[in-house]
Design a protein around this nucleic acid. Structure first.
Length: 625
RNA sequence: CGGGGCGUAGCGCAGCUUGGUAGCGCGUUUGGUUCGGGACCAAAAGGUCGGAGGUUCAAAUCCUCUCGCCCCGACCA
């Protein structure tokens, strides 16, 4: 701490439990399931107002503001400026970008008294682009990076896990505008700065996290990274290469070189048809036929939409993509798209899971499709995953309802088409799984971990600026759409993810930097003036060096106070009571250290004169800057 | 949106099958005894049984409709 500066150094807060609202619960409400949800409810951080809608009580608000402040500091340091945009957005704003349609049901739509249509902002690409478009008149004003911390809305199909997936949540979203991708002031420079800022933010929050390569999703764009807080209860699976450090989510993860089959292995037997009625999934079919899923071929039909956006039936152009993977693998749509672009040469082609009716009409026996349809359905390209391309025994659909076949053999069943590179290729079209070869380090195998996405950065490119007509005249007299990036952090989700990652049987264990209070003073006898005065004096001294202090001055029994202190998760506990005071000391304990059998643990006697230095040291050890 | 489940006191639950005065634990209030890991004794307050309609002499309980919430899946920051 600097002894003297021209400006006020932040002093800590002192709050008395009896004067604030921390309604702890002995039993968790039945509706809560995930650890963060249960604990934040029980510890009096949040209350539910409706599905996916929560009150933030004082403790939660303190955590949120600490997270927000770290976010602000790092964003500001990285050259971004804070602003505040409206939540309420006229639907016309989406006219150019069509995101009201793309976002679909997720967009929270409302109507005013005149029945005009509005959306509650889920993110703010449109309003920010509108704003900057109207304010930036010269390329010389770029680049600029603007952010806000604000409540966002999504009409989630299924809100769940408390704050982890709500319909209303707090998010920091930043948007940058550039005239170039490369070079000083370019998108890449800001993207990299954001990557660093995000790493700083989550590190400073005291979280274990990993940045992973990701698909850019409905926001659109070219490159993106997700920041994942690692924890067992995470919904997302991330894959990592232990050697190179490569990490990606399942949707994006590449797979290293794999051997491919030759298609020319000898058959294992006569092609045999098996009647397999009323079996919904590949596992059921496999069980019925007594074939392991990894010896079955799963054929999924995708519809190709060319860059013209129209379907080209009968013109010789590809209309269908049949992705074939092993029965125990999952097809990856993003990889199918890439493969389709390569095989058709159409760089803007997109794919979507085929509409069942349309696919049936074209000749696919959905549910019973085999690779043979590359010959029977015109305009079909066949994308065979490496692991599905070899010889040996295969079971497959039979191209007619309720039947499968055994002893499928590539050469015998599909024939010459296999050699036509414009119709068939062997590529990676499946999701990576644990144990797959690393794409970045030969011989290394991918490892899996669970995580919660708390941050996401995108290179948007010109998607929004083009749609909304935001162009600037560059130095070379060329008029070009502005290049954008966007960068989000789920602030309320970060709080919840922190709890998911940092808790024990007794309650929350906040990392020091974002704990609602750094120190809780547990006052055992409230009816005696001496201890009370001592507690207040200690609190003032701690506040003076910038620590936030909660004094539990409730008239409760010691057991209740200790349990509650552990529950709400304040990192340092000082117990002020007769015995220690008699020897001029208080009891000092760091949350989680040397817990007794039932969460007990007495801590150590700390002479009154040393209380401030002990707490300061513990706060520093806990990562408080 | 598909499947499953639940709405009874602030929280957790029983009662419903077989209709007949709405109950238990925790919490709350008052008094007393206590006081280092969710004390004890005594007294008390607190309920449109999610809502609407129906059947019945009578409905928390049976029937119909409806609203809300949770979990799994689809989807998704």
């Amino acid at each position: 701490m600097p002894e003297q500066t021209a400006f006020t150094v932040r002093s800590g807060d002192v709050t008395r439990w009896s004067q604030t609202l921390i309604p702890t619960l002995r039993e968790a409400p039945a509706e809560a399931e995930s650890p963060s949800h249960v604990l934040m409810l029980r510890a009096g951080y949040i209350r539910k107002l409706g599905a996916g809608i929560y009150d933030y009580l004082p403790l939660a608000t303190r955590v949120l503001s600490k997270v927000s402040n770290i976010v602000r500091q790092e964003m500001n340091a990285a050259g971004a400026s804070e602003l505040l945009l409206p939540v309420l957005l006229p639907t016309e704003l989406y006219a150019g970008t069509k995101r009201d349609v793309d976002y679909g049901e997720l967009l929270f739509k409302i109507h005013d008294r005149k029945n005009a249509s509005y959306a509650l902002g889920p993110t703010h690409e449109e309003p920010i682009t509108e704003l900057v478009k109207g304010s930036v008149t010269s390329y010389k004003q770029l680049p600029v990076n603007l952010y806000q911390i604000q409540t966002k809305f999504r009409d989630e199909a299924r809100p769940r896990s408390g704050l982890l997936r709500g319909r209303e949540f707090i998010m920091k979203d930043a948007y940058s505008f550039h005239t170039a991708v490369e070079g000083p002031g370019g998108l890449n420079e800001t993207y990299d700065a954001m990557y660093t800022a995000y790493s700083n933010i989550f590190r400073r929050c005291g979280l274990s996290f990993v940045p992973v390569e990701a698909e850019s999703g409905p926001i659109g764009g070219s490159a993106s990274h997700e920041f994942m807080v690692t924890c067992e209860s995470g919904e997302d699976t991330i894959l990592r290469c232990p050697v190179s450090g490569y990490a990606a989510n399942v949707e994006k993860c590449e797979i290293g070189a794999r051997p491919r089959g030759t298609f020319n292995e000898p058959p294992t037997g006569e092609l045999t048809e098996v009647h397999t009625p009323n079996l919904p999934g590949i596992d059921e079919v496999g069980k019925f036929m007594k074939v392991k899923p990894d010896r079955m071929l799963k054929s999924i039909v995708f519809e190709i939409k060319g860059s013209e956006g129209s379907r080209d039936q009968g013109t010789g152009k590809a209309r269908w993509a049949l992705a074939v993977v092993r029965g125990d693998h999952d097809v990856n749509e993003g990889k199918v798209k890439i493969a389709v672009r390569a095989i058709t040469g159409d760089e803007k082609a997109t794919v979507a899971l085929a509409d069942e009716k349309a696919a049936r009409a074209a000749g696919f026996a959905i549910g019973y499709v085999s690779p043979r349809t590359v010959n029977s359905v015109p305009g079909t390209v066949l994308l065979v995953d490496n692991d599905a391309s070899g010889g040996g025994f295969w079971a497959s659909g039979s191209d007619k309802p309720d039947h499968h076949v055994k002893h499928f053999n590539w050469r015998r069943e599909v024939g010459a088409a296999l050699d036509d590179a414009s119709k068939v290729c062997v590529v990676d079209v499946r999701n990576a799984i644990v144990g797959d070869p690393s794409p970045r380090s030969e011989g290394a195998k991918l490892e899996a971990a669970k995580g919660i996405e708390v941050g996401h950065i995108f290179k948007l490119g010109t998607k929004y600026s083009e749609a909304m007509g935001f162009e600037v005249l560059l130095a070379d007299q060329q008029r070009k759409p502005v290049i954008m990036g966007c960068y989000g952090i789920g602030v309320s989700r970060t709080m919840a993810a922190t709890v998911e990652q940092n808790h024990d049987a007794d309650g929350i264990r906040w990392p020091m930097p974002i704990a609602p209070y750094h120190v809780i003073i547990t006052l055992l006898r409230v009816d005696e003036e001496g201890p009370k005065t001592t507690a207040m004096e200690i609190a003032k001294k701690l506040a003076a060096i910038g620590l936030d202090v909660l004094i539990d001055d409730r008239d409760e029994r010691p057991g209740v106070k200790f349990k509650d202190a552990d529950l709400i998760g304040v990192p340092i506990r000082l117990t002020v009571a007769d015995k220690a005071l008699a020897v001029g000391a208080v009891e000092f304990k760091v949350r989680g250290a040397a817990e007794g059998a039932n969460g007990g643990g007495k801590g150590t006697l700390c002479p009154l004169a040393d209380v401030v230095s002990w707490c300061a040291q513990a706060a520093r050890d806990g990562g408080l800057a």
